[in-house]
Design a protein around this nucleic acid. Structure first.
Lengths: 325, 325
DNA sequence: TATATTTACGTAATTAGTTACGTAAATAAC
DNA sequence: GTTATTTACGTAACTAATTACGTAAATATA
């Protein structure tokens, strides 16, 4: 139907249901042709018990991919129709062992011809198909197992949104955002300190004028993330990566990574060789990000921040300049 | 799963359900990612109304392939969530026109990104597949529309059973069957006549000894069908095809056609050129069969049978003997 | 114009599955 | 050996669809 093509995968449920209804309707007429007292919904249970012999409710449920209450109900129906019989397990009083009755065995016998006929009929359909539905479903299930639809959609979303993020250099008009974004997370986990106030209230004086940089991430022209590069004087490290913040509702879009990468590039272009940063181990996603950017734990440096309990460093690799000429 | 491969198409319902459950679970998590107040089961209704504007309950139901009560309930839920609004049709008081509210329009707007992301995610799965599931289902549906599973299974059954049918020549041990099979249908529709008794009680004398033939159809070595070829003396036609009968519960397996073909072959090998038969038009399947065998209506011959209201004839074509030497 | 049929759609009952929960038996942990 | 946890499975409640049915409006028919 046209609707399915337009609306796509989100309607797969309806499509499956309709196809299944058609098949069930036919199955309902096929069983009597073989003189078999069977309902389509009984079939999976019947098949397992007839092919593999006595089985408990849970074993059947696991094999056919139903919940155990479903099997319990189907088995009850089939017992009422004298197709199955039940018997408590001798060694395990919880188990209810299910097996075919004489009538069930008779059905198993008669149904063999039906299996053969249905298999041939379906094989002919699939042979005529360019895209074998049986294999297609198997393949689809396999690919979803490797990576779920949810995961795949998340990736597409992240990718699409990342393209909408712009990294721009410092501009006084973002001063208020610079403070707000940082204050937000600092006050969530810690308290604002002396050094915070200095840098956040006057970035121009304390960061830019001292040879540092500030980069902003814009989403639809609104600042949603920030990261600063602060010049370190008389220090083994050239710059400190600091004041990194991302708007909470914009997390998970790779903005932090993008800012980090950009700041490192910036440092490189300023001739920096070693970057330094301070953080706290309760900020797990941040530490994770720093590691992803290449930072490793270092020790022994002085810090003015009370909240700092981890220090990290990164050696910037020079680009290897391959000259093909 | 192994179970599906072994048990085949009769478990397609379970397989569809499981795949659908997995997708629905993911869909439930995907909608909130886009800030959209939507349930997977609402989606088809939402899609139609958002893309095509105001629509009545039945129109929606037809387009998305649900029953109208289903749409009625879903719409009620969506109205409670302020996603849709309803309004009686001005010109037709039975109709309930459904459209998006402001909130619904906002959702339609937000969901566009989701469509794009989901489409890309699915496209990547299908591109990786050797058998494209979307096309595969479409193809399968199309092939089932051309000929239903039921029809296909019937054909396979007929073919398999036809192979189990043997056509054998007259043997006195089948005398009782010869009478029973014919008496059965004659007494169902008519009454036994003088000529019936003669032929059925003494086939050897009245048919075989006069240069005629009787063929039996055996199914698992039991006679289930019969047809006689009666020599016609001083007549334009060489033989009469008569006393054709098939056991009622064995109908629909092509036994009649097989007997007819065999009898015609037999006649040909006896040098016959024209066959004749008598019947009654209330026996529609029989007349149908005679036509299929090549008989055509003829008129004006004498008959001893009261039940005869149609006479038919067949000119036997000689095999064209192509000699390649 | 009156009457019969068809159409739209809401409510109720049914179906085939699910999850939630409780109980009893078996097994593991201390 | 007692206690805690896990397992088996039945019952109850829920879900998302269906079919069945009734009513009212619209349309066709005589």
């Amino acid at each position: 139907m046209d609707f399915f093509d337009k609306a796509g995968i989100m309607t797969i449920g309806t499509r499956f249901r309709m196809l299944n209804e058609k098949m069930t309707e036919d199955a309902n007429k096929i069983y009597p042709m073989y003189n078999v007292d069977m309902k389509p919904k009984w079939f999976p249970v019947f098949y397992i018990v007839s092919k593999e012999g006595e089985k408990s409710i849970t074993e059947i449920a696991n094999q056919i991919g139903h919940s155990h209450p479903s099997v319990s109900k189907i088995v009850r129906e089939m017992i009422n129709h004298k197709v199955l019989s039940e018997k408590k397990d001798k060694n395990d009083g919880r188990k209810n062992n299910i097996r075919l009755t004489a009538k069930g065995k008779q059905i198993a016998d008669r149904i063999e011809d039906q299996y053969a006929d249905v298999k041939k009929a379906v094989a002919k359909i699939l042979d005529q198909s360019k895209f074998n539905m049986w294999y297609a479903i198997e393949e689809f299930e396999m690919l979803l197992e490797q990576k779920s639809l949810l995961q795949r959609v998340k990736e597409e979303k992240k990718y699409r949104e990342a393209k909408k993020i712009q990294i721009v250099p410092y501009d006084p008009k973002y001063n208020e955002s610079f403070k707000r974004l940082n204050q937000e997370w600092i006050e969530t986990y810690f308290e604002m300190e002396e050094a915070d106030h200095k840098a956040l209230d006057n970035p121009e004086k304390y960061i830019i004028d001292k040879g540092g940089k500030i980069l902003f991430a814009l989403y639809e022209n609104e600042p949603v993330g920030v990261c600063a590069l602060i010049k370190m004087e008389n220090h083994e490290y050239d710059f400190e990566l600091a004041k990194m913040a991302v708007l909470p509702k914009m997390k998970g879009k790779g903005i932090g990574y993008l800012l980090g990468k950009s700041v490192i590039e910036e440092a490189k272009s300023l001739g920096a060789q070693k970057l330094y940063l301070e953080s706290n181990t309760i900020l797990k996603p941040a530490i994770q990000l720093y590691k992803k950017l290449g930072f490793q734990k270092v020790i022994g440096f002085f810090t003015p921040y009370a909240r700092c309990n981890i220090q990290m460093g990164l050696e910037i690799k020079k680009n290897i300049d391959i000259n093909y000429r």
